[in-house]
Design a protein around this nucleic acid. Structure first.
Lengths: 327, 327
DNA sequence: TTGAAAGCGCTAACAA
DNA sequence: TTGTTAGCGCTTTCAA
């Protein structure tokens, strides 16, 4: 259909103009008569001409790519989060005429990240998960590569965009408290992840001095089962789950123990997702918008790349979904 | 640490050579004395010099990127598959000095795909999911863009790499038959996806003329529940599930109906995954290697890009995991 | 075997 | 307001 390889030169010649005039018309930079500009714009629109980003990038020392770096290991739950996030990232990137280069890293293996940066394939990087003592962060800092973190990190001086987990968890917790729960159990996951700490903090702030029982590092069904048993032995009237996956396992366990929600005890999750969609009663949970998170993060990275000042820490909102499980 | 921007010119000057000599040393193309070549190689190794792929690409009309195109909608299960696949793709791409540009498409919205191709950001594309009457395939064919499909498509003349679903399902089915099942129910998912048809075909070939009941398009819990009820009413002694997600829902339903596996009836899944990891007894299932699939697919794409002839259809192997659920 | 020079498609001074 | 020209960093003829 349309010419495989039209160049800016072709356009210029066809219009009897010079390359630079065409270039200026497209970019909008520099002085240009509105008339000429429109003529060019119309022409390229009609012919579906697109400047070659490689050439553009070469001359501007830009790649027009951002790196999207996520863990390569298998966490079913977070995959869904990343996918939603990615939608936001791709959208925001496209708006700035950027594309998204994806790579995965492991806890100790950041070779994928090194590849795309050392090979000059990206202008900046978005880190999808961070750990305490994160190798990737160290590396990016040292190299002075622009990057933004989705989620939180304890590392100083890192630009991050996150949901306000502490505030959200605090709010849900204090609502539960107002509803009259007396002995509350918190079941949390991997303490190696920063978010676990934030959620616990919010929980504790919300509970103030009420009686609680806390069980962490419940990273598989067995651990969760044991935590639930302990909570029941403790005489809990409400189990607060750190995330959707844990909540799913908790619900399963309660069913096995033939305990009714919310009659025998209440259940709430600090993270809502599709995983929680099918329960009856529905689960009280905190709802975030991962796509929005991805979008904001990418916009922030774009700002950094374009040399703008950005805030060190941006917090996004949340919703508290009060459902039957805490009635 | 290392120089932010060493160019081939810097290397040439430092070594008292010309750009072209350095270029040849690195690429290995053209005549070069082994001695000079080694000198160059040593130097760039030591200084960690990497040729700028944008410049390289510009002069060779290549981007050194492949596009990884997956659905943007929310299929929890397939996400895991894609992630594993992606690992293989990234690995194979890196070996050829390529990186992976990711984008998502919807059933009717292939704008993301158009973006990366029209903008000349990729040399070829890998399609992660295909539908019948796939818009993306149409588009890529029409534009003559090199692409490979992971999985199968009915479209003619499309290069595809897939697990041999038909053979695998046929084999598992006939093993079940040999084990003496008499009335078998097949519960399948979205008939809009090609793989559903392949699995059904394998099932039917394996069953030959035995009595079966087939229920398709079970895309949510309600549908699956009804299918299970019908199967039980039919007097089934074995339920065959098209994939892990359906199997999960089937197991849940059976629990609700207080039917024991394998005592009351047997259960098998045509797709194994982590989702099936926690059942007791364990589930008989077909196991594939998504990472290997991704790798092969990307290698095939690289071959096409480099102008090599490739087979139209490549089939990967499978494993039959016989577990307690069909004992 | 090596070097000089042109060119890939674009941007950005600098001139006109 | 527009055009000319010199790069961006690399590959690749063509000469030497």
């Amino acid at each position: 259909m349309d010419n495989e390889k039209t160049t800016i030169d072709d356009v210029a010649k066809a219009l009897g103009l010079s390359k630079s005039t065409v270039s200026r018309s497209i970019s909008g930079k520099g002085r240009i008569s509105a008339e000429t500009r429109q003529k060019v714009l119309d022409y390229i629109e009609e012919r579906n001409y697109r400047p070659n980003p490689l050439a553009k990038g070469l001359s501007e020392s830009k790649t027009y790519n951002v790196g999207w770096v996520i863990p390569g290991d298998d966490h079913l739950t977070s995959l869904y989060f990343y996918q939603r996030c990615l939608q936001g990232v791709i959208g925001a990137a496209a708006k700035a005429d950027y594309d998204v280069l994806i790579t995965t890293i492991g806890k100790d293996d950041i070779s994928g990240l090194k590849r795309i940066t050392e090979n000059h394939k990206v202008d900046g990087v978005i880190l999808g998960r961070t750990l305490r003592k994160d190798k990737a962060i160290r590396y990016l800092k040292e190299k002075g590569i622009p990057f933004v973190v989705v989620g939180s990190t304890e590392e100083k001086g890192v630009i991050q965009v996150d949901n306000d987990h502490v505030a959200a968890c605090r709010e849900l917790t204090s609502i539960l408290k107002m509803k009259g729960v007396k002995r509350v159990a918190f079941i949390g996951g991997d303490t190696g992840q920063v978010v676990t700490g934030s959620r616990l903090q919010g929980f504790q702030e919300g509970m103030e001095d009420a009686r609680t029982q806390i069980c962490l590092d419940c990273v598989n069904k067995d651990r969760v089962d044991r935590a639930v048993e302990e909570a029941v032995a403790f005489g809990t009237d409400c189990i607060v789950c750190e995330d959707d996956r844990i909540c799913q396992m908790v619900m399963e366990k309660l069913k096995e123990m033939e305990l009714e929600v919310p009659t025998d005890l209440k259940v709430a999750s600090f993270y809502d997702s599709k995983l929680l969609g099918n329960y009856k009663p529905q689960i009280t949970a905190l709802k975030y918008d991962p796509t929005e998170l991805g979008k904001k993060t990418c916009e922030t990275l774009m700002a950094i790349i374009n040399g703008k000042k950005v805030e060190n820490r941006q917090m996004l909102g949340y919703e508290v979904l009060l459902k039957g499980s805490t009635q």
